[in-house]
Simulated assay, not measured.
Amino acid sequence: MNIKRVNIKNFTVFDDFELNLSSGINIIIGKNGTGKTHLLKGLYTVCDSINNETKYTSTYQNLISQLYFKVNPFDLVRDKSKKDKIISSVSITYSEKSYSRYLIIKVGENQLAEDGSMHKEVDFHINNIFIPATEILSHSKGFLALNNKYDMPFDKTYVDIITNAELPESKNISEIDKKILNIISKVINGEVVYENDNFYIVKKDGSKIDFSIEAEGIRKFALLWKLIRNGLIDNETILFWDEPEANINPELMPILVDILIELQRCNVQVFLATHSYNFAKYFEVKRNSNDKVLFHSLYKVEQGIKCQSEENFGDLKNNSIIEADTKLLDEVIEGNFEE
């Protein structure tokens, strides 16, 4: 089930925000502080709450704000000026009749009435994956045990990605998955195994490399390999990935783009937040006429955050990435003239 639209009200940097989404690839850009990560995490929170039936309880650790954001729920409220009733929400529309919503409701002075989710006409589960910007598998040894015992400073996205990576491999692999796994195996020069509470890349020469000493860019490809091999990224999966290009060698970016476009062709809905011109532009260059790719540029206004969406990266008027590249080019040209 794809996400068709999101509406966010009075939540972090968002005042009254609505965005129509592609059923294929959604590339989200914007300056720091425009809510790219909050948008991805909000979408994941609502989708994940469907599967986990996360409801408000009196236990602080079980509040959605604590599980997914590790903050007091009132810290997520944008406008706290009202003294009577304050509502913050992230709403997702799947069809005309089907939606789900994450709500924070404050009544009275610092009194929480709701920090949970609600659904309407939702009779399905959602296979969703969130890959955080910070690579975590290299620190996974004993992580889940410690997290279950202590109040660790990591939100549920980190717990979930380790849990998903540690799952056993799927017995059945589709032909398209085999193709993608082979592409990734060439990049990482091997395959990923999980043994003795630790992740390794078994290289083609038989050597076993601990995740912690492998290059981070390679670890990102390796994580993707493991998620696909575990059967977690497949038909109708929703994949959220925060800054996938970070620490990846520029020559590997087009390979990653090819993989993500191929996943989109397998009915995987993809949400990516990026600061990279090359990474974003490759989607425009490499897609074909049947591929569904939409670029979303978040920008600040007095009322909060607005968004412009275009099928072509260069058509975005509020394009902070191109603005930064243009500024650099101007400085290079100016410096050459001074010489």
Rank of each mutant, 00 (worst) to 15 (best):
N319M: 04
D155H: 09
Y282Q: 05
I136L: 02
I321T: 01
I180F: 05
L43H: 00
I104G: 03
L223P: 02
I25Y: 04
F69D: 00
L144M: 15
S212Q: 10
M118Q: 15
I162V: 13
E166F: 08
K80N: 15
I322P: 03
P244C: 04
H296N: 09
F14G: 01
I188Y: 03
E18W: 11
L239H: 00
K9D: 09
H139R: 10
F240M: 02
L112C: 10
L272E: 00
F69T: 03
A324K: 10
F313R: 00
T157S: 13
N62S: 10
L40S: 03
K306S: 09
V192M: 04
A133F: 02
A273L: 01
G335K: 14
L260K: 02
F199K: 04
V71S: 15
A145W: 10
D16N: 15
P73Q: 07
F130M: 04
A246W: 07
L21Q: 06
L223I: 08
H275D: 05
E135F: 08
S49R: 03
N2T: 11
I248A: 01
F17V: 01
L167P: 04
N336T: 08
Q269V: 04
P132A: 09
F199C: 13
L19N: 05
K178W: 04
L112W: 07
K300T: 07
N196A: 15
N319R: 04
Q308T: 13
Y158E: 01
Y277G: 14
N318E: 10
L21A: 07
T163K: 09
E216T: 12
V285M: 14
V293P: 03
D16V: 03
F124M: 07
D205E: 05
P73N: 13
Q308C: 12
N182V: 11
S170P: 04
S117Q: 03
L63F: 11
T237Q: 00
A113R: 09
T163I: 11
E262Y: 14
L263C: 14
S98F: 15
A145V: 13
F14P: 00
G33Y: 12
G304M: 04
L103H: 03
I322S: 01
F74H: 10
A280P: 06
E195Y: 12
R78F: 09
I173L: 09
G142T: 06
Y200D: 01
F313N: 02
N2C: 15
A113W: 07
N72A: 05
N148R: 14
L137T: 00
A165R: 02
N62Q: 14
E251N: 11
D205G: 07
A165E: 05
I3L: 15
I213E: 08
N336Y: 12
Y94W: 14
H38R: 03
K178H: 06
E214N: 05
W225E: 05
V46L: 01
Y94I: 11
I29D: 00
